[in-house]
């Protein structure tokens, strides 16, 4: 998309706020609407927009395939790991009350941890699916759209 000057300029302006908004949704999910799932999607959308306009090659320099594939698994590990940590601290699986002195503080930590897990997995899966689709040689020319 080298000849789309307006698209390139607008994308450069948009990507940073999209990523920032993704982080906001991720860590503000317990106070406002949103949470890990939406944040993971929004964060991925920021990078996918960059990849569409500036080329998949440059996106892969930031997030190589093996990093994305590991992120997919890492999120589930963070989620299930939170549960295991709770068990190690003497509670039940995914019973966050044992994470801090007061029960509700533990709940806050637990929710942040599992939401992060959700966000990381969703981000990884969205990026992996995008790579899988966009990484194949296109049969259509740029002008044919």
């Amino acid at each position: 998309m080298d000849h789309h000057l307006i698209l390139r300029v607008i994308t450069k302006i948009l990507v940073a706020p999209i990523l920032l908004y993704g982080l906001y949704v991720q860590f503000h999910g317990d106070f406002g609407p949103g949470g890990g799932f939406q944040a993971g999607v929004i964060f991925a959308v920021g990078f996918i927009l960059y990849g569409i306009v500036f080329g998949l090659r440059r996106l892969r320099q930031i997030f190589p395939d093996y990093v994305v594939h590991r992120l997919v698994a890492l999120g589930v590990l963070i989620y299930a790991g939170t549960g295991i940590v709770n068990m190690a601290l003497g509670g039940n699986f995914l019973d966050y009350n044992v994470l801090a002195e007061k029960g509700y503080q533990g709940q806050h930590w637990g929710i942040i941890a599992v939401e992060l897990g959700v966000g990381v997995t969703v981000f990884g899966v969205m990026m992996a699916i995008f790579y899988s689709f966009a990484g194949r040689p296109p049969s259509l020319d740029d002008k044919e759209w």
């Binding site: 317990d30 949470g35 698994a73 299930a80 995914l94 637990g110 929710i111 599992v114 959700v118 997995t121």
Partner: peptide, 30 residues
Amino acid sequence: IHVPNVVTAVLASYRGYDTLGEVTVVFTAG
């Protein structure tokens, strides 16, 4: 839980098992 958004409280804490299952579904789909 002291969290203003009840949806998050239900998803991440009360129904944490279900959400773990959902994340696993997303993982498997990916």
